[in-house]
Design a binder for these strands. Structure first.
Lengths: 343, 343
DNA sequence: CTGAAAGCGCTTACAG
DNA sequence: CTGAAAGCGCTTACAG
């Protein structure tokens, strides 16, 4: 509770020496250091962060900004908790703390970020749910604040990011479906401007082209990123004049709603229509027939993202000379039965 | 980016006046205030939080400490995101920000809290996952830091808390099962010291007693709070010399594993054994037969918890004169088919 | 209504 | 190796 002044008085030495002892400076007598450390422990003294921050110009805290709308909250899974855990294990190597900065639902994500930056609550940011057009990049570049993004953007500036391999998954899925004889393959992406939808669509498109299949805008279904959105997608798919024989989803929870709609219509995934989901996760494991999807190690992704961020920070970049500037995180194919029998 | 000094120079007035204008003090000429506000907007000036905090002795940030082990991370659902959203809507009334403080997996939750308190990163705490014996309460009381707990504890000190009505759910479940003719009712609780397990068990016990049924320790199954734990519970239940006819779960995800084990043994919930889960949530909705459980409004809980915290803070308690000191949050019965036919 | 000055709790050149 | 002092960016009595 006491400030450094009280501690110094108690030890009958100057606050400067107390500070140096506590911060591991080398020009302190070992005997003195021991006394200081013992007294700090005893009195429960830890330096006040505001004082340190003000003097040092840094907080030793990293902020992970999340930005959930009502839909994302309702559907949230273990993605962020898992990511957070692995980020922390990287940051704790350097005595940095991680805080999550949840942008309030009602507040604009850009205004929120501006406020957090100006307040200097953290030294660096991890931003997530990146949009195709996302003013946050420009702003952070200009503010010269270290940051990395989980997700890409069409922003002109170069910045560091890590992202799941959406284009790889889309391409692999198309390849596989074409190999099974499908030609009329639909894709379901979020109706929002979130960047991953664009990337996924590009991967889908490129792969179709490689196979000489014409891209058909009618087969691109845009819905909410949720179970309900999957149901909606099912409705739209079945209303098409010529029904697709296969569908690729950019978000696995959509599979739950899609299965429901198909069941209502007496259709079975894998028999009547091929379905490929996205990430393997607890909530889709129960689906029957088992969802064909992709597995991904969130903890390794978190480690990569964390090291990438540290490599952009002057105080830590020497520890991470080999950190990449961008990182496309691969997923492993996890075949189920929803994409039909192999041939 | 500029500090208050730059802004004051730019306007050619003193920093004191700039500060007063920005902070809405009344003794500022309206004309001056307008100029200051305009210039701040233009230059993107927002007060540095470290400077403010140091001077004011507060940060205007509230911390929500979470404390997830690997099991909790793997199984995490929308509970915290939903809670966070509603907490924020309360705090934003007073221009307070909420940050989540995720205690790293490897770190002791008590040491982590001590560090966060000492660093003065936040003005007040919300702590969660409270244990039966939880040193954090004593510590926070002594530190005289405002806090509320989501969950109770056996701590001797009085403190403010909100908690789900575990005892109510346990009692209601026993009542209902007894009314259906069950006498041999098992209960599954977490093997950890987390307080909710104790409360649930007390509710179960009290209700049995009211019905004149002897408490049987053999029927208390302790497992991990997860799907896997539910499977484990299924194994243990079926190994009992005399099999229970009903089972009450304190955590709904256990139902998924329990269903799987029962299915493996050719048993059907609701026909061969009655099952009552806990909270209704997306991941258990698919269970067949439908899980009998309880519904709960997380957003109202968050609002209640947030107001309770503000009522403990000197600067805000006048706004919440009627906030309760403790809050047992009710859940609404959501009947399914897993507890057998009504009679 | 405004300005000059003190001081919040630290860390860090600097002097000895 | 240690101490005295400056100063990080603010807010707020105090004087005028």
């Amino acid at each position: 509770m006491a400030g450094i002044r009280k501690l110094a008085e108690h030890l009958d030495i100057s606050i400067g020496t107390v500070s140096r002892a506590l911060n591991g400076k080398h020009d302190v007598n070992e005997e003195t250091r021991k006394r200081v450390l013992a007294a700090a422990e005893e009195l429960g003294y830890v330096a006040n962060q505001s004082g340190r921050s003000l003097r040092q110009g840094k907080t030793n805290v990293i902020g992970l900004m999340t930005d959930w709308n009502a839909e994302a909250i309702e559907n949230s899974d273990n993605f962020f908790p898992a990511l957070t855990a692995s980020l922390q294990s990287v940051f704790s190597r350097h005595k940095l703390d991680l805080v999550m900065l949840p942008c309030p639902n009602e507040e604009d994500r850009f205004e929120y970020l501006k406020r957090m930056v100006a307040r200097h609550i953290v030294d660096a940011f991890i931003i997530t749910s990146t949009r195709r057009n996302d003013k946050r990049f420009d702003f952070l570049m200009k503010a010269k604040i270290p940051f990395v993004a989980l997700g890409r953007s069409a922003s002109a500036h170069p910045f560091r990011w890590a992202d799941l391999d959406f284009e790889g998954v889309a391409g692999f899925s198309v390849d596989r479906l074409v190999a099974k004889g499908h030609r009329r393959i639909a894709v379901v992406v979020p109706s929002s401007d979130i960047n991953l939808g664009h990337v996924f669509l590009e991967g889908y498109r490129a792969s179709l082209q490689r196979h000489g299949i014409a891209f058909n805008d009618e087969l691109v279904i845009r819905v909410g990123a949720s179970e309900q959105g999957g149901y909606q997608a099912g409705c739209e798919l079945l209303q098409l004049a010529e029904r697709p024989t296969a569908v690729i989803l950019v978000y696995e929870l959509m599979a739950i709603g899609l299965y429901r709609k198909l069941e209502e219509e007496g259709l079975l995934p894998g028999r009547d229509i091929a379905v490929i989901g996205f990430r393997e996760q607890p909530r889709t494991k129960f689906l029957q027939p088992r969802l064909t999807c992709f597995r991904c190690s969130l903890s390794d992704l978190g480690t990569g993202l964390g090291e990438m961020l540290l490599s952009t920070m002057k105080a830590y970049n020497r520890f991470y000379p080999d950190a990449p500037e961008t990182l496309i995180w691969p997923l492993t194919f996890a075949p189920g039965e929803s994409d039909g029998p192999d041939r």
